[in-house]
Design a protein around this nucleic acid. Structure first.
Lengths: 287, 287
DNA sequence: CTGAAACGGGAATTTAAATTCCATTGAAAC
DNA sequence: GTTTCAATGGAATTTAAATTCCCGTTTCAG
């Protein structure tokens, strides 16, 4: 990978590989340009140098410097490569994927082609899961949850097994936002003991999906009994923690060949953290 | 009669219909040009007027006459229509919300409005991130990664901070699939020590996103030096672990008001586990 | 703190592309 | 056969884009 030379560049992939191999040696601004070029092949191919420069917030001359730093005569030469790549992507106008799902059902889609049919269906399922959040994660519910987090003395986060990554994420983000948060991670089998201190001034975020962990449910029980606020992240109304929660969110009901989607819940967790972040920003401005 | 007017032309289809309605009134040579334009939208969009004229065997000036006969200012105006149409046909165009994200960054999209626009844009960004996997997570790459996992004596998973949830998820799933896996979690600051035993018969899955953790990068370095296979999960080609990886996947380039999407990488991690699961299932049947 | 080297902004210049203009051709009318 | 006029080729001009160059600014070494 080190001995990449300009000569062998014919297509966009080749260019990108070459650019990556040279990236470290570029100046700060040229890196900025490099990132844009890597991320926006369509703009790079079609816009004028001045337009591209405008989007990156850089002088047009810097684009030429960028091209020359990589050994090209000018930026136009790079654009030629990207235009060529653009045309190659065109003939198969496979932009809408609904007809690909149809094909998959009929078995007409070529399994040996570049992409994996199971993966594609799985991607669709994840997109569905995320889209479902638009209806479920309403502003009112998010604000309610944010309110519980803000006025809590301590926030506890609990999730086991499949839900543990989500719990970790919430813990990490809230720590970054200066929320006094504790992760009930059950290290050393001490989950019940860790939960003993939960009181009426605290908030517990409970993440649980089938098969619902008994330990997690019993923590939710204890928290509700002790008068703590409970925020539930789970999959459906019949989940055991719904009736224990002051506010709950439903996500990732979907399952594809035995694999439950997880992106919806991650996205939900992030949405909650963004709502929290924005709230704190606004509160800070008013102070 | 010709109720078609130039004003309503916005896309290629509209232009073509308009051109058809005016076709009969054109001179012999202008008809020749019209046919070419109807048949070669790609050339019409991308070539210079001189190149197109050359292909039709006509003078460039005739192209301008053609455009003006139809009521346009010049041929460039027609090219603009065709370029716009071209972009829409490109795969991934419909899923591209980057311009909305840009607006949000500039603050031109009203953050304080009734509906939580940040969350909607964030959901869009996540969908975008997941869609991008279709192109990047090819069957070949997934199978290569699965191969490294299958033939490894031990598999190590490493990821810090934001990437830790992904690492945890991979660890959890591989343990369930009976892969001899170890999570390098850095408990007690012992990350370097945990990585000491990595050898040529092992495989390391490295998850890292900006700001790339120095510790994680140095583990990837050491692993590559010691001859272990490295599977990289990161955000872009210029990530420090790309050149250290035997196979790498790119996801979650997007960032919305300071929050990086994470659903793409979770989905990718799941895709990898599904590929692994399916592979083991098939292998089991043959045994 | 000082000086050298690299970097980057922006005007000036060059180059290329688009458009206009004019002379010529060719076809139709008388 | 001559006249007329739209159609066309091709040079000339204008316009726009790409590239160069100069100079102020930053960065880093000593």
């Amino acid at each position: 990978m080190t001995s990449m030379e300009k000569g062998q560049i014919k297509d966009v992939d080749g260019f990108n590989a070459y650019l990556a191999s040279r990236f470290d040696g570029l100046s700060k601004q040229l890196k900025k340009i490099a990132r844009f070029v890597l991320d926006n092949p369509i703009d790079t191919a079609l816009d004028t140098a001045a337009e591209i420069a405008g989007k990156i917030e850089v002088q047009p001359s810097s684009l030429i410097r960028f091209a020359q730093a990589l050994g090209f005569d000018g930026f136009s030469e790079i654009q030629r490569i990207f235009r060529g790549g653009l045309v190659q992507q065109l003939p198969g106008y496979s932009a809408n994927y609904s007809h690909r799902i149809e094909k998959l059902k009929e078995g007409t889609e070529d399994t040996a082609s570049s992409d994996h049919p199971v993966l594609n269906v799985f991607i669709d399922a994840n997109i569905d899961a995320i889209n479902a959040l638009r209806a479920d994660a309403t502003e009112a519910k998010l604000n309610e949850a944010v309110g519980y987090i803000n006025k809590a003395r301590h926030v506890y986060v609990v999730g086991q097994r499949r839900s543990y990554p989500v719990a970790i994420y919430l813990y990490y983000m809230m720590r970054n936002l200066d929320v006094p948060t504790y992760l009930l991670d059950g290290v050393g089998g001490l989950l019940p003991e860790q939960a003993n201190q939960i009181g009426p001034e605290d908030t517990v975020i409970v993440v649980t999906f089938p098969n619902y962990s008994d330990q997690v449910i019993s923590i939710a029980h204890k928290a509700a009994e002790n008068g703590a606020k409970v925020v539930g992240l789970t999959d459906r109304l019949v989940s055991p923690i719904v009736k224990l929660s002051d506010v709950y969110f439903l996500s990732d009901k979907v399952e594809v060949s035995g694999f439950r989607t997880v992106a919806g819940t991650m996205c939900l967790a992030q949405a909650l953290m963004i709502a929290l972040g924005l709230d704190r920003e606004t509160a800070g401005e008013n102070a």
